[in-house]
Amino acid sequence: QVNIAPGSLDKALNQYAAHSGFTLSVDASLTRGKQSNGLHGDYDVESGLQQLLDGSGLQVKPLGNNSWTLEP
Rank of each mutant, 00 (worst) to 15 (best):
Q1R: 14
Q1G: 12
Q1N: 12
V2G: 04
V2L: 09
V2Y: 10
V2N: 03
N3Q: 10
N3M: 11
N3W: 11
I4L: 04
I4S: 01
I4P: 00
I4G: 03
I4T: 02
I4Q: 02
A5Q: 10
P6C: 11
P6N: 04
P6F: 05
G7E: 02
G7L: 00
G7A: 07
S8Q: 09
S8V: 05
S8M: 09
L9N: 01
L9K: 00
L9I: 02
D10G: 08
D10L: 14
D10N: 07
D10H: 12
K11P: 02
A12Q: 05
A12N: 04
A12W: 03
A12C: 15
L13Q: 01
L13W: 00
L13M: 03
L13S: 00
N14L: 14
N14I: 14
N14Q: 15
Q15Y: 09
Q15R: 06
Y16L: 07
Y16H: 06
Y16R: 02
Y16C: 07
Y16W: 14
A17L: 06
A17M: 09
A18E: 12
A18Q: 12
H19P: 04
H19D: 12
H19I: 15
S20E: 13
S20L: 15
S20Y: 15
S20C: 15
G21N: 09
G21D: 08
F22T: 05
T23S: 08
L24K: 05
L24S: 05
L24H: 05
L24M: 08
S25H: 15
D27I: 08
D27Y: 03
D27K: 06
D27N: 09
A28P: 14
A28R: 11
A28N: 08
A28Q: 11
A28C: 14
S29K: 11
S29V: 09
S29I: 10
S29R: 11
L30A: 04
L30G: 04
L30F: 07
T31E: 01
R32W: 11
R32Y: 12
R32F: 14
R32K: 12
R32M: 12
R32E: 13
G33T: 04
G33K: 04
G33H: 07
K34Y: 07
Q35A: 08
Q35S: 11
Q35E: 09
Q35G: 07
S36N: 02
S36L: 02
S36I: 03
S36Y: 01
S36F: 03
N37F: 10
G38N: 02
G38Q: 02
G38S: 01
G38P: 02
L39Q: 02
L39N: 00
L39M: 06
H40L: 11
H40T: 11
H40Y: 13
G41V: 02
D42N: 14
D42W: 15
Y43N: 03
Y43H: 07
Y43W: 13
Y43P: 04
D44S: 11
D44A: 06
D44R: 05
D44V: 05
D44T: 12
V45Q: 05
E46G: 11
E46H: 11
E46K: 11
E46V: 13
E46M: 14
S47M: 10
S47D: 09
S47P: 04
S47V: 09
G48S: 04
G48F: 06
L49F: 08
L49S: 00
L49Q: 02
L49G: 01
L49Y: 01
Q50M: 13
Q50S: 11
Q50G: 07
Q51W: 07
Q51V: 13
Q51S: 08
Q51H: 11
L52K: 00
L52H: 00
L53Q: 02
L53T: 06
L53C: 07
L53G: 00
L53Y: 00
D54M: 15
D54A: 15
D54I: 15
D54E: 15
D54Y: 14
G55P: 00
G55R: 05
G55T: 02
S56I: 07
S56P: 01
S56N: 04
S56L: 09
G57S: 03
G57R: 03
G57K: 04
G57W: 04
L58M: 03
L58I: 06
L58Y: 02
L58F: 04
L58K: 01
Q59E: 08
Q59C: 14
Q59W: 10
Q59T: 13
Q59M: 13
Q59Y: 11
Q59L: 11
Q59N: 09
Q59P: 01
V60Q: 07
V60C: 14
V60I: 12
V60Y: 10
K61A: 06
K61R: 12
K61G: 03
K61E: 01
K61W: 07
K61Y: 08
P62Q: 13
P62N: 14
P62S: 14
P62H: 14
P62L: 10
P62F: 15
L63A: 09
G64Y: 03
G64A: 05
G64E: 06
G64M: 03
N65F: 08
N66E: 06
S67F: 10
S67M: 13
W68N: 04
W68L: 06
W68E: 05
T69D: 06
L70M: 05
L70K: 03
L70P: 04
L70G: 05
E71C: 10
E71V: 14
P72Q: 10
